[in-house]
Simulated assay, not measured.
Amino acid sequence: MHEMAICENIRVLIEEQARTQHFSRVERVCLEIGALSGVEVEALRFGFDVVMRGSVAADARLDIVETAGTAWCLPCAVTVTIGRRYDPCPRCGSHQIQVTGGEEMKIRELEVT
Rank of each mutant, 00 (worst) to 15 (best):
A18N: 08
I14D: 05
I6M: 05
V112H: 15
V99N: 09
C92Y: 09
E3P: 00
H2G: 02
G54W: 06
G101T: 02
I10W: 05
T113D: 15
V99F: 06
T81N: 15
I107W: 11
R61Y: 01
I10Q: 09
M105E: 13
Q98V: 09
S94C: 03
L110K: 11
I64P: 00
I14G: 04
V65T: 12
I82K: 10
C89A: 13
T70E: 10
T70P: 00
C73T: 02
S37I: 00
C7I: 04
G93S: 09
G38E: 05
E27S: 13
G102L: 03
E16C: 06
V51R: 15
E111C: 05
R91M: 14
A77N: 14
E15W: 12
P88E: 10
E103H: 09
M4H: 05
G38I: 04
W72F: 15
C73F: 00
I10F: 06
Q96G: 09
L36H: 02
I107P: 03
E15P: 00
A18Q: 09
I82N: 11
S94M: 10
C7L: 01
V26L: 12
P75Y: 05
Y86M: 13
V26G: 08
P88M: 04
I107G: 11
K106S: 04
R53E: 15
S94L: 07
I14Q: 07
D49W: 02
I64F: 07
